[in-house]
Design a protein around this nucleic acid. Sequence first.
DNA 1: ATGGCTAACATGGTTAGA
Length: 263
Amino acid sequence: MSTTPFRLATWNVNSLKVRLPHLAQWLDSAPLDALGLQETKTVDADFPAAEIEGMGLSGAWYGQKTYNGVALLARSPVRDLVRGIPGYDDPQARVIAGTIRGVRVIDCYVPNGQALDSEKYVYKLGWLSALRDYLAEQLQQHAQVAVIGDFNIAPEDRDVHDPRAWEGQVLVSAAERAALHGLFDLGLVDVFRRFEQPERSYSWWDYRAMAFRRKAGLRIDLILASTPLAALCSQCTVAVEPRRWERPSDHAPVVATFDLPGA
DNA sequence: ATGGCTAACATGGTTAGA
């Protein structure tokens, strides 16, 4: 049976306006079919739609002033768009979902949480609970589901450059990891770990203290796939190269290839 | 080394990120 690759990426761009040249340059070298962005940091009226179209992409975006903001883009039509988590009243623009070539793609920017004693941490855990309910419903509706984005949680200690220094901190705390594993329990698979990976594979490095050069990062940007979709995954890598460029995002893209049935 | 750096908004210094 013939298959066609579906190359899906997630990238926290930390301001789409600043990172438009990086996106264009990366797309020149990386053949992609669909892409979820986070931290676009722009209202929908100012979204650079013409520039995105010039890159051969179309889709939809859901943004707000200054903070957050997500976009779901593809080379083929994005259908049945849904912004936010239905039924969850959230003033922050963090989720956009659509169907691309039969795959239900849900692009997420999970709250950071700031610190364990912060109200933002309470918001993060409540938000993840709402996301879990939403994903449970989506997995009933669709066989092929991909949940992609900046999860702001490092799943395991091997996803942390210095687990001892980070122990108990936000992004690695037990309650956050339990919430993430709650998503895995729905049947979602972290496809990156389906393959052999280099030691010290991360997707985010602090701008400060030469963290990137020291390989002092975290793997917090993930591609999760429903079991039937994960079975079609043939590759998943961190595209570390854009992190080396001038004025980079602090996150690198993560890319997965799914060999979808059909020509 | 409880700092370091980047971006938005604003146009100096705060908020937020992770």
